[in-house]
């Protein structure tokens, strides 16, 4: 334990209003902490640069999963265990349920929250590819306001996001219109469990008479933050699925992906595997189970 708990303040006001008030009165002074699965790791390593923390754990207004006619709405404080237990999620948003099962282990899933995963903003975030391809919207709240932005505009740089210093991520809205889309999500991690993603690719596509009428590709670890692959999507959109198109898709993603070498993998590996994953998805669309 390299961090000194005596040098950090932590308060738990207990309600959303009280948390927002605190953040409004001293903008930027308070670091929100939910399940602690990121910040407590930094704390143990003596790298937690947050003298004042406000606890979001147990704030009831943040922990929910409910549905409207158009969307499934997930509170930022919902844990990944909550998502896995939610019939709404497992039935309608299978990719998100799958992503939730990737988070660390059972003990991590019972603490890690969807909001925490997004605000932490790791390029490798497990939930991000699913949210990107489900075209999620982020609802942001502060004492003064609330607003919604597309998730694919939430991350603005390496570990940077669209939140102002007094704002909290409140909820994620997931449109209920992907039931007829073909869906794909695969993570390639350092091992089968307790793994940080080396590369992950999600995809949703709507196919009409063999033509890709709608496609979204979301990737982890191919850029400084989780990102849609718009140029690759464009290369595939409104095209009939053929072997040639699969090669076009490969070429597009190899060009668009800008991964890095780091302690867990290499840029070369990430690019090639991303292309292979896309190919695997496109072969599925073609109706061929596996690439020979």
């Amino acid at each position: 334990m390299r961090g000194n708990p005596e040098t950090h303040e932590l308060v738990a006001p207990g309600s959303l209003a009280a948390v927002l008030h605190l953040m409004a009165v001293e903008p930027g002074a308070w670091t929100p902490i939910a399940g602690g699965t990121e910040l407590m790791v930094a704390h143990a390593a003596g790298r937690l640069n947050a003298p004042k923390l406000v606890s979001l754990w147990g704030v009831p207004e943040l922990r929910f999963v409910h549905a409207t006619d158009e969307s499934i709405v997930v509170g930022a404080g919902a844990t990944f265990a909550d998502l896995r237990r939610s019939a709404l999620i497992t039935e309608e948003l299978p990719l998100l349920a799958k992503a939730a099962s990737w988070i660390g282990s059972i003990a991590n899933q019972s603490r890690a929250t969807l909001g925490g995963n997004l605000v932490n903003g790791s390029p490798a975030a497990d939930s991000s590819p699913a949210l990107l391809v489900y075209d999620a919207e982020i609802e942001i709240i502060s004492a003064r306001d609330s607003r919604r932005i597309p998730y694919h505009k939430f991350h603005t740089g390496y570990k940077r996001n669209a939140l102002a210093v007094d704002e909290l991520l409140y909820a994620v809205h997931l449109p209920r219109r992907f039931g007829h889309h073909r869906q794909y999500l695969r993570k390639v991690g350092t091992r089968r469990a307790m793994a940080i993603s080396k590369v992950a690719l999600g995809a949703t596509a709507f196919i009409e008479t063999g033509v890709i009428r709608e496609i979204r590709l979301g990737a982890a670890s191919l850029a400084a933050f989780p990102t849609r692959l718009h140029r690759t999507e464009d290369a595939l959109l409104n095209k009939p699925i053929t072997n040639d198109l699969i090669q076009t898709g490969r070429n597009a993603i190899l060009t668009e992906a800008l991964p890095i070498d780091d302690i867990r993998s290499t840029a070369e590996y990430r690019r090639r595997v991303a292309a292979n994953l896309l190919e695997e998805f496109l072969f599925e669309l073609l109706g061929v189970e596996k690439r020979p």
Partner: peptide
């Protein structure tokens, strides 16, 4: 896996990626 890729790439057993 990165090492196996490197072995296969060196033996031209995997497709060449396009230039960036």
């Amino acid at each position: 896996p990165e090492d196996l890729l490197a072995v296969l790439a060196a033996r031209k057993c995997v497709e060449e990626p396009v230039a960036q």
